[in-house]
Nucleic acid binder design. Structure first.
Lengths: 237, 237
DNA sequence: AAGTGGTCTAGACCACGCA
DNA sequence: GCGTGGTCTAGACCACTTG
């Protein structure tokens, strides 16, 4: 009956993309319910089972939350839970650190070799570079150097620099990140900004964040002094 | 038609448990194919769709690998890929470190307060304590202190101490782990065993491994010197 | 050609949340 | 009582692998 041509992707993936773009574009607002399964199935001309498979996938990708008896709701990507999910620094009791930014500087430049490698850019591509200090209240937490592909973030405001807010603004849905960790000691300039003695032991964090579609969206180097108030917490599956 | 009583779990979960126990018990051997969907459906008196849902779940839990046109195969939990999936230390090019153990010491004792907390044990429960040195060839990598609930691992051999092999031997299927990381400097005793100068910057790794059913199976403290040959790599989803 | 898992459909009933 | 998502069924066809 169904005349899927030779190289089409499965219907449920196409449907996922269609629904995801409604979320990314803001057509469906965070916090609000989307149409129920059977209405969506009717609208797109697929079966309820296919719709369900697409929605279950979107829930796994943290785009929506489904609740039996209530409905399917668009997640607010800028809510604290989701916004800081790529930052594994926690207080000792396991709570995430919301974090504010200080001493923000932004520049645009041609991508250097390291940036081309980490962000899969070409020699002639440009990047936004952001230097900033991440605070937990009055406690300096991480000295960060961020690189963003300029092509993905046109008209970068100098007010908002947090990757989750930026991605949301530009219709990009974040997927996963990988972080490499080394130990090190604080160089004088870093130590000064973190308000710690030079040569204190610190973590060097090297993180690349990917969009749901695989595009590389952010490269961040972080210098972090944990002290005995914070830890780095990661789950291994 | 179906007379599920009030508090039964969904069929596909019951089926998953039944199939998982065949894997855990060794009734189905690693590397070999298991019966196809329709045969399993017939055997357990459920529909093919329910069987599929159970098998898809088991694939997500790394119990089996499914391949279109070939069949469904039992994973070898002791193969390097799976065996070292809870150790995030990698060489700089991203390869996992298989790792052998040296200087192994085992003792049994009553669980102390920390062990009770981390492993959810009662005051009177007992633990196996293992001290050992994890090597990468001739390079000392991690000084490890491991605690295992004695109740889960009766007749612990002093030959095999690796959690994946142990779990496999005792019919336990591992699920996830969470690791807490701090920076530190090497105390003299640790430095000596790692062949590094005292006060070298090291990672302190505190990991709890859970079985698929949620039971806490291992608590490990690791002292690791990364140097410039290794990194800690983690994926954030 | 035969057998496997992957996709898709259509419809039933159940558990949950709310008014 | 009604509407939602969650489970379960039965069956069709497709894509891939192997003989």
């Amino acid at each position: 009956m169904n005349s899927r041509s030779f190289f089409t992707r499965p219907l449920y993936l196409q449907l996922r993309d269609a629904l995801a773009s409604r979320v990314a574009s803001g057509q469906w607002k965070p916090g609000l319910a989307i149409p129920n399964e059977s209405d969506l199935a009717r609208e797109f001309g697929v079966s309820a089972g296919t719709t369900r498979k697409a929605l279950d996938l979107m829930e796994a990708e943290r785009l929506v939350t489904r609740r039996q008896g209530r409905g399917t709701f668009v997640n607010d990507q800028t809510a604290n839970d989701l916004a800081f999910r790529f930052c594994n620094i926690r207080t000792l009791d396991g709570r995430r650190v919301p974090g504010q930014f200080m001493e923000v500087r932004i520049a645009e430049a041609q991508a250097n070799e390291a940036e081309c490698g980490r962000l899969s850019l070409g020699e002639n591509d440009r990047v936004h570079r952001i230097h900033r200090l991440r605070m937990d209240g009055v406690r300096p937490l991480i000295v960060e150097e961020v690189s963003l592909p300029a092509a993905l973030f046109p008209n970068l405001s100098d007010k908002i620099t947090h990757i989750v807010a930026l991605a949301h603004q530009h219709g990009i849905i974040l997927g996963r990140a990988e972080e490499r960790i080394w130990t090190g000691v604080a160089a004088p300039t870093v130590a000064k900004r973190l308000s710690i003695p030079s040569n204190s032991p610190i973590l060097r964090l090297d993180r690349v964040t990917h969009a749901l579609d695989g595009r590389r969206v952010e490269w961040r180097i972080g210098h972090c002094y944990l002290g005995d108030e914070y830890m780095y917490l990661t789950e291994i599956k």
